[in-house]
């Protein structure tokens, strides 16, 4: 039983580590600010839960497990708000996203002007 838990935690920690580095690489590779927000969100939405649940499987049964769940809930609940506030501030500051298609940017019409 504890052997199984060890292996499960090994897999979770490994997947979390790989995703964590993937997010860091994405942060460097992405072409503009708005695309980088997506890469940063990658490390926070899945890498953090994977790493923390991998850690939980290695711990003894105590109140600390609930604390980790609290940290996890807090990270997952605040991450979108922080991303959204950064994106809005960037738009407000005059940044416009690079677009991959050839259609005109919707930043031109009145509804999205800040």
């Amino acid at each position: 039983m504890s052997e199984l838990l060890d292996w499960l935690s090994f897999v979770l920690l490994l997947a979390g580590s790989v995703l964590c580095i993937t997010g860091g690489v994405g942060l460097l590779r992405m072409p503009d600010f708005f695309a980088r927000v997506h890469a940063a969100g990658l490390t926070e939405t899945l890498a953090a839960p994977l790493l923390l649940s991998g850690l939980m499987l290695r711990m003894d049964w105590s109140l600390d497990l609930l604390k980790i769940v609290l940290i996890l809930v807090f990270i997952l609940a605040t991450n979108p708000t922080a991303s959204h506030s950064m994106a809005r501030a960037a738009l407000h500051g005059g940044c416009r996203p690079l677009l991959g298609n050839r259609r005109p940017s919707p930043g031109e019409n009145a509804s999205s002007k800040t």
């Binding site: 964590c20 997010g23 860091g24 942060l27 600010f33 980088r36 927000v37 940063a40 490390t43 926070e44 890498a47 953090a48 790493l51 923390l52 940290i71 990270i75 991450n79 922080a82 950064m86 501030a89 960037a90 500051g93 940044c95």
Partner: peptide, 18 residues
Amino acid sequence: TEYDRMLAANAFGTKTVL
């Protein structure tokens, strides 16, 4: 841009928690 720096700082902070 300064927004990029703040985004990186935020990601750095989350990694510090982990």
